[in-house]
Simulated scan of single mutants.
Amino acid sequence: MEEGLRERKKRETRQRIADIAMGLFMAKGFDNVTVAEVARTADVSVNTVFNYFSTKEDLFADKQDVAVERAPGVLREREPGESVVRAFRRDFFDAIDTRDWRYGLNAGADVFARVVSDAPSLVAKLRELHERRENALARALADELEADADDITPRLAATHILNTTRILTHYSTRRLLAGEDWESIEPDLRAQAEKAFDLLESGIGGLLAGKGTAQQRDPEAEDEEAEGED
């Protein structure tokens, strides 16, 4: 349906407030900016800000609903015959190519990560967001698989897939925070992503197979050693 004028103005106002708030958060740090300052800079009232955002943390995570919906969206939009892992592999590499924000690979992701790490309430907010994404993907997988309520397969799959993308994002962000440029990180990130998604597809059943935690010893050699001691 075509967006009405009232809805468009509300959407634009919400986006303007969010953009102004994010600029202040990036420049000053989350805990050093008040909602009143955001409202004053955006030329709206504090009540108007809270009409659009329930909490200050929601103001920071203004795209959280889009981020949550993106995970089941990748599942629904997969190509004919494409597995869920293949769909997420393709989506992640597309994000690398475009440096899209959905996996935290956009320019400025390091600044975003630093602001989050400096504010405990944002760390909790991002943890909650990750749980919401995982729940949404698990529900979508359960629907597609027509899984019973007691079937843990959808939850296991959602957890493994989204933790894989989160760890890859952390790998990239950590190196950005260390001062490396994207050009040096990108090829390594691609290689790590290939390994990660290969592991998702093949499983970890063969990981460390045949490699014990302690060095294996020859029983006959042990017997000879014991006789020598006698």
Rank of each mutant, 00 (worst) to 15 (best):
residue 1 M to L: 11
residue 1 M to A: 01
residue 2 E to N: 03
residue 3 E to M: 07
residue 6 R to S: 06
residue 8 R to K: 08
residue 17 I to W: 12
residue 20 I to N: 04
residue 21 A to F: 11
residue 23 G to P: 15
residue 26 M to I: 10
residue 28 K to Y: 09
residue 32 N to Y: 07
residue 35 V to S: 02
residue 36 A to Y: 02
residue 42 A to K: 10
residue 43 D to C: 10
residue 44 V to S: 03
residue 45 S to E: 09
residue 45 S to Q: 11
residue 45 S to K: 06
residue 46 V to R: 00
residue 47 N to D: 14
residue 47 N to I: 15
residue 50 F to W: 09
residue 51 N to K: 08
residue 54 S to F: 12
residue 57 E to M: 03
residue 60 F to G: 05
residue 62 D to Q: 10
residue 63 K to W: 11
residue 64 Q to I: 15
residue 65 D to A: 06
residue 66 V to Y: 01
residue 66 V to N: 05
residue 66 V to Q: 05
residue 67 A to M: 14
residue 67 A to R: 09
residue 69 E to D: 10
residue 73 G to L: 01
residue 73 G to K: 01
residue 78 R to S: 14
residue 83 S to K: 00
residue 90 R to P: 15
residue 94 D to I: 02
residue 95 A to Q: 07
residue 96 I to E: 00
residue 96 I to Y: 00
residue 99 R to V: 11
residue 100 D to L: 12
residue 103 Y to G: 00
residue 105 L to P: 10
residue 110 D to T: 10
residue 110 D to G: 13
residue 112 F to K: 14
residue 115 V to S: 04
residue 116 V to K: 08
residue 117 S to W: 11
residue 117 S to C: 12
residue 118 D to W: 04
residue 122 L to M: 09
residue 127 R to T: 15
residue 127 R to F: 09
residue 130 H to L: 05
residue 132 R to E: 11
residue 133 R to P: 14
residue 138 A to E: 03
residue 145 L to Q: 10
residue 148 D to F: 13
residue 149 A to I: 09
residue 153 T to E: 06
residue 154 P to A: 05
residue 156 L to C: 10
residue 163 N to W: 00
residue 169 T to L: 03
residue 170 H to E: 14
residue 171 Y to H: 12
residue 176 L to C: 11
residue 177 L to M: 11
residue 178 A to K: 03
residue 179 G to M: 05
residue 179 G to Y: 06
residue 182 W to F: 11
residue 187 P to M: 03
residue 189 L to R: 00
residue 189 L to E: 00
residue 196 A to W: 08
residue 198 D to F: 04
residue 200 L to P: 12
residue 200 L to A: 02
residue 201 E to D: 06
residue 202 S to N: 07
residue 205 G to P: 14
residue 216 Q to E: 15
residue 217 R to I: 05
residue 220 E to A: 06
residue 220 E to S: 08
residue 224 E to M: 09
residue 226 A to D: 12
residue 227 E to K: 02
residue 227 E to T: 03
residue 229 E to M: 07
residue 230 D to F: 02
residue 230 D to W: 10
residue 230 D to T: 05
